[in-house]
Design a protein around this nucleic acid. Structure first.
Length: 992
DNA sequence: CCCCAACCGTA
DNA sequence: GTACGGTTGGGGG
C-alpha cells in the first residue's frame, strides 16, 4: 500500500445491527427467511463499490475489507469480566443473517476479516493505523462513536445509511473534543450498552468541558482536587481507578495480530456470476438486475447459489408465531407469484425454490460415491484444517460413530465430517468427507482390555475442536437423526447449536410416502446404497463393537454417513421451501430434537421391587391357570401358540369357529374367546385370563427392569420423531406409551413408575382433544357449542341422535354414542362400528346415516377430505403438516377404503399431535420463566408427565395447564377451547 | 439369525 | 373404523 491508495474498512458487525433495525422486517425471502439486514448490507456494498464517486465519500477505494466480530469473548473480558455483560441475545430474525452476510461479503469478492479474541473495532484500528503509516487514506464505513478515536486528517468515517462523512470537524462538532480526545471522553462518560463504568455523573458535555480545561484524563485526575464543584470532585477522585479501567477498555488496539496483511486487502474485480448467483438466492431481484447490467451478465442464465442457512436455533422463544397459510406450492409459477407478493420487483424469471429443488435432485441422483476418496484424519493439524474449512463453508455434514445404537449408553469412537466444495457451482460442486478416529482399540488385547489403536487424534484435544465447531451457531451442522448425536455429545458435555436433520426434513416433506432412515433416503434421492453397519461390525452373536473395527473400514462407513447427510440436505432443504413445508419443519420438527433429547436423558424411576413382586404374582397366577387349562383341554400344549390353541378349541373340542385370520387359520382373538365364554364354555375364559397375565409379565414386569440404566438407575425411552404417518411420536426401547391402565392388574404396573424422593409426578392430559379438533376442522355447531358449554360430549351426541334427554340417560345409550364418536375419528365404517358394538351391520349403518343427518358438516368434512386426498395424494393438519396416502386411488376397494379412513383420521390425529408438540416446545421456556424446576419426562400422545419438586407442585400445575391449553395459538385460533386436566401424585397411576 | 403372523398393550 | 411397539410362536434359511 502506498501514498494515494484508499482503504475502505466496513464495520460489518455494526452494520448488521443498524441495517436490521433500520430496514423493515417484512423484507423476507419467499420461504420466509428474514433477509432485511442482508439486503441493506448488499445494497450498501454495491453502492460503495460502484457509486463511491457520487456519494459524500467522493473517492474510489483501492483496498477494501469487511470486518466482523468473531465472538463475544475478547481480551477485554480478561480486563473486566463485566464487559458487555448486559448485552442481550440478538433478535431471532437476525441470527440467520450473520452467516448470510459473511456469504454476501465473499460473493462480493471482498476480504472477510475476523479474529478470535478481538473485536471488529480492534482490527479496524490496526488496519487504519497501518494504512495511514503507509501513506494511504482510510474510510471507515461506520457511524459508531467507539471508532471516532481513529479519525485523523487521513482517516475518516462514513455513515453509509445517512450518506454522511465524519471527519475531524464533525467529531468536534458532535462531541466538543478532537478525535484524539475521544478515548478520554469515553473513559469518563462510560457506555451503558457495553457496560463500561466511566465516572458516575459525568456525561459527554461535562467530559468535553473538563477535557477542554485540563487537556486530558491523566492531568484531570492528577489535578482533581482543583475542581470547584464538590460533588463532581468527589466523584472523580472516588472513581479514579474505574476511569482508568474504562480507558483501557475503550482504547482500541492498533497492534492486533493480523491473519491477512494490509496488502491482502487489494480490491479485486467483481466476479459477476458469483455475485449474481448469491443475490438470486437471496431473491434481491432489483439488485440482481442492476448488478447484471453493470457486469454485462445474463442473470437468467445463472442458477441461484445454494446458501446454507441457519434458520434459527433451539433458542426459539416461547412465542411460536407460526405463519398460517403456506403460499408457496410445488408449482413453479405460483411460487414465483408468491415471491412476487413479497418482493414487488420480482421478475418473471426469478429463481424459484421449486426450480432449485429440481436442479438439486437431478444433480445428486446417481452421483457416484468414492469410498477410497474419504480421508482419515489422524492428527490435530489435519482436524483443524477440516474444521476451518467447515467454518468457511458455514455448513458441515456430521455423524458420530459410537459403540452402541443406544444414545444413553453409547461411547464415542470417532466422528465424521463432510464439506461441500464449490457448492455454488452446480456442475463443479463436490463433497469430500473424512473420519476422525478417537477411541478405536486393537482387537489383539487380552482380557484386561485392548490398547488404543495407533494413528488416532488425541481425544480430549479433538473434542475441544469438535466443541468449537458444534457449538458455533454460524456453522450449520447437518446430520441424519440428529437427536442421537445430540444426546451422545450432550453426555460428553457438548451442546449442538444450529443444526438441520435430514430425517426430519424428509418426514416433514414425505410422511406416509416412504421411510426416512438414512438407507431409504440415500436409495431414493442419491441412488446409492450405503455400507450397512452389519457389514462393518458383523451382527448377532459374532458382532463386534464399533471401536474394535479396523479404522480404515470404520472410516469408509462413518465418512459416508456424513457425506450422505450433506448430499441429502442439498436435495431436501430447497424442497422444504418449494413445497411450503419450511414452517412445519422449523416449528414442529426441529425444535423438538433438544426437547426430546432432554426428556430421554432425564428418564423416569421405576420401583423394581414392586415389579419384581408383581412378576412373581403374575407367574403364579399364570401357572395356576395353565394347570386348569391343561385339565380342560385334556392335554398339555403350548398355550401361547394360536395355532395349537385353535387345534384344541376348534378341532379336538369341536367348538364353533368364529372369525378367520388372513392366513385362513381360525382366529383365537380375545373377541372370539369372549364370545365362546359367553356361550358357557369354560376354557376360553381361562385362555383370555392367562394371556392377560403372561402379557403383563413378559412385556412389562419382566422386561422393564432390564431397561434400567446402570448409572442413572432410571429408564430412558427413545422417542422416534419420524415413524408415524400422522405426526405422532412413538416410543421405543422401551415403549412407555403403552403402559397398562385399563385393568386393575395393569394399573399396578403403572403405579411402579414413581417420582424421585422429594418430588411428585404430574400428569397433564388433554380432554377429548381429537373430538375438539374434529369440531374445529369440520366446524360443527352442536359440537362447538357443547365444548364451549363444557357439556358431556358423548351424552350430547346420544341425545342428538336418539332423542334421549341427557338427564338420566342410560349408560348403554351413551356408550353407543361414544363408540360412534370414536368411529367418526377413525373414518367410520358400518363394518367396524358393528364389530365394536356387537350389533348387525345394517343397524350400524343406520346409526351412521342418522349421525350424518344430525351432523351434516361431518359428512361434508369426510367427503371433502377424501376428495382432497385423491386430488393431492396427501391431507393436511391445521398447522400444514402433510400425511401422504399414495394408495388412495388403489383399484383394490378394500385398500382404497382403508386409505380413505386413514386420510380422514390423519388431520384429526395429526392436528392433535401438532398441538402437543407445540406445547412441548413452549413448555421449557414457560417453566423457566415461572422460576419452576419441573422436568418434562414423558409424552403419551395427549398427556405429558413431569417430575416436580413437592414444594413447587401447586405453582407448576397452572403453568403446565396454561401452556397446553393455549398451545395452538397464535398460529391457529381454535373454534373450541382446549381443556387440560392435571394432577400430582407419587406414582403415575395415581397422577393420571 | 431373520422375518412374519397373531395377539395385545396404549392413545 | 385410526395410530403405534413388543412378545411369542413358528417357519425359512
Amino acid at each position: 500500500m502506498k501514498n494515494g491508495d484508499h482503504l475502505f474498512l466496513v464495520d460489518g458487525s455494526g452494520f448488521i445491527f443498524r441495517a436490521f433495525h433500520a430496514i423493515p422486517p417484512l423484507n423476507r425471502k419467499s420461504d420466509g427467511l428474514p433477509v432485511n439486514a442482508v439486503s441493506g448490507f448488499c445494497n450498501m456494498l454495491w453502492k460503495l463499490l460502484k457509486d463511491a464517486r457520487n456519494t459524500d465519500v467522493g473517492v474510489t477505494p483501492t483496498h477494501f475489507a469487511v470486518i466482523f466480530d468473531y465472538s463475544s469473548k475478547t481480551f477485554r473480558n480478561e480486563l473486566y469480566d463485566q464487559y458487555k455483560a448486559n448485552r442481550t441475545a440478538p433478535p431471532e430474525d437476525l441470527i440467520p443473517q450473520f452467516g448470510l452476510i459473511r456469504h454476501a461479503t465473499r460473493a462480493f469478492n471482498l476480504p472477510c476479516i475476523e479474529k478470535e479474541g478481538y473485536e471488529a473495532d480492534d482490527l479496524i484500528a490496526t488496519y487504519a493505523r497501518l494504512a495511514e503509516e503507509a501513506g494511504a487514506d482510510v474510510t471507515i464505513i461506520s457511524s459508531d462513536k467507539d471508532l471516532m478515536q481513529l479519525v485523523t486528517p487521513k482517516v475518516s468515517m462514513y455513515d453509509s445509511m445517512k450518506d454522511k462523512q465524519i471527519s475531524v470537524p464533525e467529531v468536534i462538532e458532535k462531541w466538543g473534543v478532537t478525535p484524539d480526545k475521544m478515548i478520554d471522553l469515553q473513559a469518563m462518560t462510560g457506555d451503558s450498552t457495553d457496560n463500561i463504568p466511566g465516572i458516575p455523573g459525568i456525561g459527554p458535555k461535562t467530559a468535553a468541558q473538563l477535557l477542554q480545561e485540563y487537556g486530558d484524563l491523566d492531568t484531570l485526575l492528577a489535578r482533581a482536587e482543583e475542581i470547584k464543584q464538590q460533588k463532581r470532585r468527589e466523584n472523580i477522585i472516588a472513581n479514579r481507578a474505574q476511569a482508568l479501567l474504562s480507558r483501557e477498555l475503550v482504547t482500541l488496539k492498533t497492534d492486533t495480530p493480523l491473519d491477512v496483511p494490509l496488502d491482502g486487502l487489494v480490491l479485486e474485480p467483481q466476479d459477476g456470476p458469483r455475485l449474481i448467483a448469491f443475490l438470486k438466492a437471496m431473491e434481491f431481484n432489483s439488485l440482481t438486475r442492476r448488478v447484471a447490467e453493470v457486469c454485462g451478465c445474463d442473470a437468467s442464465a445463472i442458477e441461484a447459489a445454494f446458501v446454507p442457512v441457519e434458520w434459527g436455533t433451539e433458542a426459539h422463544g416461547p412465542d411460536l408465531d407460526i405463519v398460517a397459510g403456506r403460499p408457496v406450492t410445488d408449482d413453479a409459477t405460483s411460487a414465483a407469484q408468491a415471491a412476487g407478493t413479497l418482493l414487488p420487483d420480482a421478475s418473471p424469471d426469478a429463481p424459484t425454490p421449486a426450480a432449485l429443488a429440481k436442479a438439486r435432485a437431478a444433480f445428486f441422483a446417481g452421483r457416484p460415491f468414492d469410498h477410497s476418496a474419504y480421508a482419515t484424519i489422524r492428527d490435530l493439524a489435519a482436524l483443524d484444517n477440516w474444521i476451518a474449512d467447515a467454518r468457511e463453508a458455514g455448513l458441515v455434514g456430521f455423524a458420530t460413530a459410537t459403540t452402541t445404537q443406544d444414545a444413553m449408553q453409547a461411547d464415542l469412537c470417532g466422528f465424521s465430517l463432510a464439506i461441500a466444495d464449490n457448492a455454488n457451482n452446480p456442475t463443479g460442486a463436490s463433497i469430500r468427507a473424512a473420519y476422525v478416529p478417537l477411541q478405536h482399540r486393537t482387537g489383539a488385547g487380552d482380557l484386561l482390555g485392548a490398547g488404543l489403536a495407533d494413528g488416532q487424534v488425541p481425544t480430549a484435544e479433538a473434542l475441544e475442536r469438535l466443541r468449537a465447531m458444534v457449538e458455533d451457531p454460524s456453522i450449520l451442522k447437518v446430520a441424519q437423526n440428529l437427536k442421537f448425536d445430540y444426546l451422545v455429545l450432550k453426555r460428553h458435555g457438548i451442546s449442538v447449536r444450529s443444526f438441520d436433520d435430514t430425517m426430519l426434513m424428509s418426514y416433514a416433506l414425505d410422511a406416509g410416502a416412504g421411510a426416512h432412515g438414512m438407507d431409504s433416503l440415500a436409495e431414493r434421492w442419491l441412488g446409492h446404497k450405503p455400507i450397512a453397519l452389519k457389514d462393518v461390525t458383523g451382527s448377532g452373536k459374532g458382532a463386534q463393537s464399533f471401536d474394535l473395527v479396523d479404522i480404515d473400514r470404520a472410516s469408509a462407513y462413518a465418512a459416508e454417513n456424513a457425506d450422505v447427510a450433506l448430499r441429502l440436505w442439498h436435495v431436501l432443504k430447497p424442497r422444504l421451501a418449494a413445497e411450503g413445508l419450511m414452517t412445519v419443519y422449523e416449528r414442529l420438527e426441529r425444535p423438538l430434537v433438544p426437547v426430546l433429547a432432554r426428556m430421554e436423558e432425564r428418564g423416569i424411576t421405576i420401583d423394581r421391587q414392586v415389579l419384581s413382586r408383581l412378576s412373581g404374582e403374575l407367574g403364579q397366577g399364570a401357572a395356576a391357570l395353565e394347570d386348569e387349562i391343561y385339565q380342560l383341554a385334556g392335554e398339555r400344549f403350548t398355550i401361547g401358540s394360536p395355532k395349537q390353541l385353535g387345534d384344541i378349541l376348534f378341532g379336538k373340542m369341536g367348538l364353533p369357529g368364529g372369525a378367520k385370520t388372513k392366513t385362513g387359520q381360525w382366529s383365537t382373538s380375545a373377541q372370539v374367546l369372549e364370545d365362546l365364554a359367553a356361550e358357557g364354555v369354560p376354557l376360553p375364559r381361562k385362555i383370555v385370563d392367562w394371556r392377560q397375565l403372561t402379557k403383563l409379565k413378559s412385556t412389562y414386569t419382566d422386561a422393564l427392569p432390564g431397561y434400567v440404566h446402570p448409572q442413572t438407575r432410571r429408564v430412558h425411552t427413545s422417542y422416534s420423531l419420524a415413524s408415524t404417518t400422522t405426526g405422532r411420536l412413538s416410543s421405543v426401547d422401551p415403549n412407555l406409551q403403552n403402559i397398562p391402565i385399563r385393568t386393575g392388574e395393569g394399573r399396578k404396573i403403572r403405579a411402579a413408575f414413581i417420582a424421585s424422593p422429594g418430588h411428585k409426578l404430574v400428569s397433564a392430559d388433554y380432554s377429548q382433544i381429537e373430538l375438539r379438533v374434529l369440531a374445529h376442522v369440520a366446524d360443527i355447531p352442536q359440537l362447538k357449542q357443547a365444548f364451549a358449554d363444557g357439556i358431556d360430549i358423548h351424552a350430547m351426541t346420544a341425545s342428538e341422535m336418539f332423542g334421549v334427554p341427557v338427564e338420566g340417560m342410560p349408560a348403554e345409550v351413551r356408550r353407543r354414542a361414544k363408540a360412534i364418536n370414536f368411529g367418526i375419528i377413525y373414518g367410520i365404517s358400518a363394518f367396524g362400528l358393528a364389530n365394536q358394538l356387537s350389533i348387525e351391520r345394517s343397524e350400524a349403518g343406520d346409526y351412521i346415516k342418522r349421525y350424518f343427518e344430525r351432523f351434516p358438516g361431518i359428512k361434508d368434512y369426510m367427503d371433502n377430505t377424501k376428495a382432497f386426498a385423491r386430488e393431492h395424494g396427501y391431507v393436511e393438519t391445521i398447522f400444514g403438516r402433510r400425511a401422504h396416502y399414495p394408495e388412495i386411488k388403489s383399484s383394490n376397494p378394500s385398500v382404497r377404503a382403508f386409505n380413505e379412513r386413514a386420510a380422514i383420521n390423519a388431520p384429526i390425529q395429526g392436528s392433535a399431535a401438532d398441538i402437543i408438540r407445540r406445547a412441548m416446545v413452549k413448555m421449557e421456556p414457560a417453566l423457566a420463566a415461572g422460576g419452576l424446576s419441573a422436568r418434562m419426562l414423558l409424552q403419551v400422545h395427549d398427556e405429558l408427565i413431569f417430575e416436580v419438586e413437592e414444594a413447587e407442585v401447586e405453582r407448576t400445575l397452572p403453568v403446565v395447564v396454561e401452556v397446553m391449553e393455549t398451545a395452538a395459538m397464535p398460529a391457529v385460533s381454535m373454534k373450541v377451547p382446549l381443556k387440560v386436566d392435571a394432577r400430582a401424585a407419587h406414582n403415575w397411576d395415581e397422577a393420571h
